[in-house]
Write a protein that binds this DNA or RNA. Sequence first.
RNA 1: GCCCGCAUCGUCUAGCGGUUAGGACAUCACCCUUUCAAGGUGGUAACCGGGGUUCGACUCCCCGUGCGGGUACCA
Length: 520
Amino acid sequence: MAGGGCSAPGQLPGDGHLSGRPAPLSEGPASLPAPTSLPGNRRLRFAPSPTGALHIGNVRTALFNYCLAGPEGRFLLRIEDTDRERYRPESVLEYQAELRWLGLLWDEGPEVGGPCAPYVESERLPLYRRAADQLLDGGAAYPCFCSRERLEELRAAQRASGLPTRYDRRCLHLSSDEVAELRAEGRPEVVRLRMPEGESVWEDLVLGPQRFDNAEIDDQVLLKSDGYPTYHLAHVVDDHLMGVTHVVRAVEWLPSTPKHLVLYRALGWAPPELAHVPLVLGPDRQKLAKRHGAAAVSEYREMGYLPEALVNFLAFLGWSPGTEEEVFSLSELRSRMTFQRLQSSPAVFDGQRLDYLNGVWIRRLSPGELGQRLRPFLPQARPEQLERIAEMVQERIRRLDEVPSLMAFAWADPEPGATLLQGSLSARAAHDFLESTLPAFQGGTDGLMDALRALASSAAASSPEGAKAEVRRLMRVVRIALTGQEVSPPLDACARLLGPEAVERRLRHSLWELRGPAGL
RNA sequence: GCCCGCAUCGUCUAGCGGUUAGGACAUCACCCUUUCAAGGUGGUAACCGGGGUUCGACUCCCCGUGCGGGUACCA
């Protein structure tokens, strides 16, 4: 069941009754609509920070959350736009577009709404302020007026003497008079968590039992001087109010989990289940980043990867079904993925395996569907050509962006030179064979391959030693005459696509090339 | 520096005390084949090291090593 859910705002202190405190935020509604129970047997969320392109590692986290919600659960999208320095408004729409492209549709979130709206954190500021006030009241947090300069100096000094870098709690000991005085001076003020003594212990769904000594953990800033919360405060408040049952995030968050647990306790809330999934690494085993090449989903889309393949591939970076199956659709993943089968060690992003899976998914598409997917890659193709092209390339590509070069011959007459045409053949042999195929092409494309094979075999009969190789050499001339390429789709399909006129024109051009200036 | 996590073929992984350590990608060879693919067959290739526990450790515990993460008024 989805816990206290949206009824929780009622448990917050009703209003900002600490009237001495500056109220940088306008007061929000007294409370959110409070359904007694929220939909979904599980509620998982993806809460990206819109600061740039959607990163492939984040997508995997989103995928895990989506799948782990299961068929009966709800997947929420929440925009974590609390860092105003790095915030990029266009990222919000980009993230949504990419998630939709991947099929990771959210049941609640921006645009689709839901019982816990709004799902954009910058629109929930009063909620965080109230939570901060509650923490302040209970002594779980304290105001801090230290300047960034002082904090930097402090850290530098601690580092220099080999100590862990932590806030020295200077402002914890401020008297109320001193606080009032500092406020009167208009000093910028933040709210810090007062990390209590003791240990933080939890059972991580992926990593197992975890234990941290709270003494090692810093007094984290919860509310910044600009009135926005830090991630730590915002996600605890929102996960609780949104009835999130399982928090699935990357291990880079592991060390800050004790802060979150302390927050839940101080606010009187039950923490959700926690699962920390291992990182996705680049080939050099460092956290996957831009310098490894493509790190943004958009780049993979533009390179011609299918969302099905990307999803399938990403799922196996940290999950496996325990069987020998390896091809999974998103909906299969959502019904099969469990916490028990999540890997605890990091995974290297192996582009070759992605290519392989992409080929698998390309071949699973119907030619009509593949044709549609090819559209952005073949802007010059007429709509009715797309399906035919799809059939021609389906078995020979691993990425959609291979198609333009593979099919380049379709839109412009190639002009292969004699050297390319003849290859290891004599110009005479190449010319004569090519000439002999003219009638076969005029007979339409149905029996074309048989006719060509027959011609090639009889022409090669004179070199019994390497008859097969000779057939290959002869067929190569035809391929190059028709397409200008050494690699192409099957010749009969090429001829069909080109039509008899273009075929004859190309063959005659190559014959002319082979005759050369001297006329052979 | 300090804190934390992780550790099976090159890569993704199966294994949850007794297996010829399995599969997939990649790679190599062969077959099929008009090219390239796709497909088929076969091969090479792994338990980080050292101590324990146990009749028996890839599997459990400890230490080391390696790799990674965190250490912000960023997420």
